[in-house]
Design a protein around this nucleic acid. Structure first.
Length: 422
RNA sequence: GGUGAGAUGGGUGAGUGGCUGAAACCAGCAGUUUGCUAAACUGCCGUACGGGAUUACCGUACCGGGGGUUCGAAUCCCCCUCUCACCGCCA
């Protein structure tokens, strides 16, 4: 969430920048500014009233000791009426602040200056393309047919066990998953990311910290008996490691990587984009998370983009990097680069990674701060990216590297798979 | 699942109605001393919001969370959450 300080000091800036996200913030921002003014007035009155009560209470204590009973009784009745007044102020203050909070969480993060104008995914900026799109013969198959033919992924069996979107990987298919996870983790740890294995269920506070709750509640699986949520991404547990933490200067940089299965209900997304591995309810992903000082976060972002690009290159997949336009940017992101690989048999680009800088937006919810060189406490910046999400990588590997009904495993992956052809 | 104990500042841990935003020790920071390492000594050392000449300083809140009793609550009462220990079950 945005900071009150920014909203108070430069409301017009907030309104102008949120317009890039096609978000009309004027009405909300103006209400917030008024509620904030009211908040401070109420607090001033309340503080004064409470201070007077404390002063009188202490006085009663000493009057009692001195045996001045009548004076003490008089003071008691004064405190009673002060107390009544402070109760009213407290109630008004709580109501005011609840309203303020409910409005401030409606405001998305401010896009940074690099974010291009645009209203949807058609307006995203292609900043780089790499690799070569393979020429496939007329008998090339989409990955769902190829995977069935090779008996490495069983979608129907997943339906039997759980439901649609929960595939069963078998034989070399299962080994391929494990190989990709290990390869990605190895590359990440070699680049200085600390490997962590977090829980895959989180509590409510963690869901709130990274912004999944309350707005995206319907997108997470909810274990209602214990009130836990299945993680939609490792970002949630890993970033929440630093919830309510104040770092010191020499704790930076914080770099973490984690593999977890990810669970997404994907309520409301049906249609042709969901065939095969294109959209699943459970999938594997390796994530990278960084916590940086504000002045370093954009250098860190560039570093992360280069890092992810390195992985995609190792796999030899044709790819492109997009800088998302204002209209396509997520609620919490200040800037996002998407990585897409070309799925030759489907003839379309598939998103396999999303690398974002959230600046202080998540940190403000998480209360993730650090003490700067002057000893002042400031919000840190958080960033994360997929490195990488497996299903669409697998889809592209199968489709792009198919040859005579088989799949050639890229060189860099072979030490992990132990085989070079499926 | 059963029984019991507990939740206090970065850590350990004192504190059963006012002088406690909170002892002491450890860790951390600054300094003095010192041939090095070490040690000793002195001072500082929570967070948020508000006020303010915006360093100072002042006010208020916070001792797991919420409510209550009281002129006054870390301390007494109620509810909730969580943690630990033992037993049972078990990968």
């Amino acid at each position: 969430m945005l900071t009150l300080k920014l909203l108070r000091e430069d409301p017009e800036y907030v309104i102008r920048k949120l317009a890039v996200k096609h978000f009309d913030a004027r009405e909300i921002v103006e209400k917030i500014v008024a509620l904030d003014k009211n908040r401070r007035d109420l607090q001033k009155d309340l503080d004064a009233c409470l201070a007077e009560q404390k002063r009188k209470a202490a006085m009663i204590g000493s009057l009692m000791k001195e045996g001045k009973k009548a004076e003490a009784e008089a003071a008691k009745s004064e405190v009673a009426s002060l107390k009544e007044h402070s109760k009213e102020l407290e109630a008004a203050s709580e109501k005011n602040n609840d309203e303020l909070m409910s409005l401030i969480v409606l405001l998305p993060n401010i896009p940074c200056d690099l974010v291009p104008e645009g209203k949807d995914s058609n307006d995203n900026l292609v900043v780089k393309t790499g690799g070569t799109v393979p020429e496939l013969g007329p008998d090339a198959l989409p990955h769902w047919d190829l995977a069935k033919k090779l008996d490495i992924i069983d979608f129907d069996l997943g339906v039997k066990l759980t439901g649609a979107g929960f595939p069963v990987y078998k034989g070399k298919g299962a080994r391929l998953q494990r190989a990709l996870i290990n390869m990605f983790l190895d590359i990440n740890t070699r680049a200085g990311y600390l490997e962590v294995e977090p829980p895959v269920m989180v509590n409510e506070a963690s869901g709130f910290g990274t912004g999944q709750l309350p707005d995206k509640e319907g997108q997470m699986y909810h274990a209602t008996l214990d009130n836990f949520y299945l993680v939609p991404t490792a970002e949630v547990p890993v970033t929440n490691i630093y919830r309510d933490v104040i770092l010191s200067e020499n704790d930076f940089p914080v770099k973490m990587t984690a593999y977890t299965p990810c669970f997404r209900r994907e309520a409301g997304s049906y249609g042709k984009d969901v065939r095969g591995l294109n959209r699943l309810h459970q999938f594997d992903k390796v994530e990278i998370v960084r916590i940086e000082k504000p002045e370093n976060s954009y250098a860190a972002l560039d570093d992360m983009v280069a890092h992810v690009e390195g992985i995609v290159c190792k796999l030899g997949l044709p790819y492109r990097i997009l800088r998302l336009c204002g209209g396509d940017l997520s609620f919490t992101s200040a800037i996002t680069y998407d990585f897409e690989v070309y799925s030759a048999a489907q003839g379309r680009w598939l998103e396999i990674s999303s690398v974002s800088n959230f600046e202080s937006y998540q940190a403000n919810r998480l209360k993730l701060r650090y003490k700067d060189a002057d000893g002042k406490t400031q919000l840190a910046h958080t960033l994360n990216g997929s490195s990488l999400a497996l299903p669409r990588v697998v889809a592209a590997l199968l489709e792009d590297f198919q040859k005579d009904g088989h799949v050639i495993i890229p060189e860099a992956l072979r030490p992990y798979t132990g085989f070079d052809i499926i």
